[in-house]
Amino acid sequence: MSSPKEIMRENLWTNNPIFMQILGICSALAVTNLMINTLIMTLGVVFVTAMSNLTVSLMKSLIPRKVRMIVQTLIIAFYVIIVDILLRAYLPDISRALGPYVGLIITNCIIMGRAEAFAQSNPPVLSLWDGVTSGMGYMGVLMTIAFVRELLGFGTVLGFPVLPSGFEPWIIMVTPPSAFFLLGIIIWIGKTIMNKEGATA
């Protein structure tokens, strides 16, 4: 069994859900035009991954094998709807900005992937930790993309203007295709660094 430190390193870097496992790409494209939206959305993912991992791990001995996947989906959907309800009630503006994407957290393959690959066969607290770190790995990449897109597309960082007034916004950065380019570049850089690490280690 891996130690918490190893799990963190794996989920944040060497086995990062986005650039190593190439999971959860769809949402990476859709919600990364503003950092604040990305932050809230990825916090939602961290919460859902952590809680569903915890729940699956707690219940793993009770779940019949035949309905394992469907129960996992049920658990994930449950937490996603909770997040959606909370946002609607307490952060209406962000809920409106995120639109259908909160509901779409359900379809994020990372969550199901962790429940199936980790929580099914590990103790609850470690599973919770795995969920948190996986979500953070996802958050790290998305926030990087959102940072570049918001900076170049609007000239702002978290809504604060940081570039001089003569700045010419990059229209393409506001539109989803730019996330394709940026994600590709991040995967490219990430793998190049990893290959170098691998060569020296």
Binding site: E168, W170, I171, I172, M173, T175
Partner: peptide, 10 residues
């Protein structure tokens, strides 16, 4: 095309 789509006005 990249710069056209990014900076249509200039």
């Amino acid at each position: 095309l990249f710069i056209f789509l990014s900076f249509p006005v200039p």
